[in-house]
């Protein structure tokens, strides 16, 4: 049987009420049930319903990467997926990677290498870079550039971003040896 999320049709010519249903999401290790319409993107669910505004809405069309989050450890664009599609998934946002008092290695490297100017793309850049580390496929600068190409930075902080990601890739590589 399919789980069906729907609402009764409106009667008497009144506008249909927004048909929401409970959606159970696990975000940064905490499971919560949000009342969502089927068309709510994961991005909007995170920002507007779970009130985690670290994840940014840039283009809202999968072209800029500002909305990148990790789902079961893998980076995806949260704007091009529906929240209802992620029950039973483990979602990690920038808020789940570190705290102001305890930055993740990537967060610290972004600070150290001046890897942002306005900062709007930064949560997506860092979540994407964390996904890149989890994948373990990028080693050289050319590989990091190619595998970070889904994240745009309108300020042009790419040199610092590359340095920051490279530093953490190298240090994780050393730890594995």
């Amino acid at each position: 049987m399919s789980q069906l999320l729907t609402s009764a049709p409106a009667s008497g010519g009144l506008p249909a009420p927004v048909p929401t249903s409970p959606v159970r999401l696990t975000i940064n290790g905490q499971t919560q049930t949000l009342q969502l319409a089927p068309w709510t993107s994961l991005l909007d669910a995170l920002r507007e319903y779970a009130h985690l505004t670290g994840t940014k809405k840039g283009c809202d069309h999968g072209q800029c990467g500002a909305c990148t989050v990790l789902v079961n450890g893998r980076r995806i664009n949260s704007c091009l997926t529906l929240a209802v599609m992620h029950e039973d998934d483990d979602i990690t946002t920038i808020e789940g990677l570190g705290t102001p008092d305890n930055l993740s290695p990537l967060q610290q490297a972004f600070v150290d290498h001046d890897a942002f100017q306005c900062g709007y793309c930064t949560p997506g850049q860092i979540c994407s870079a964390q996904g890149l580390l989890n994948e373990g496929r990028a080693h050289s600068e050319a590989e990091i550039k190619e595998l970070m190409s889904g994240n745009l930075c309108r300020c042009g902080a790419y040199v610092g971003i590359l340095d920051a990601v490279k530093e953490v890739v190298d240090s994780e590589g050393r730890q594995e040896k």
Partner: peptide, 10 residues
């Protein structure tokens, strides 16, 4: 987005 219904196939 405009309204639609949703189901997850098993």
């Amino acid at each position: 987005m405009y309204p639609f219904t949703y189901s997850r196939a098993t």
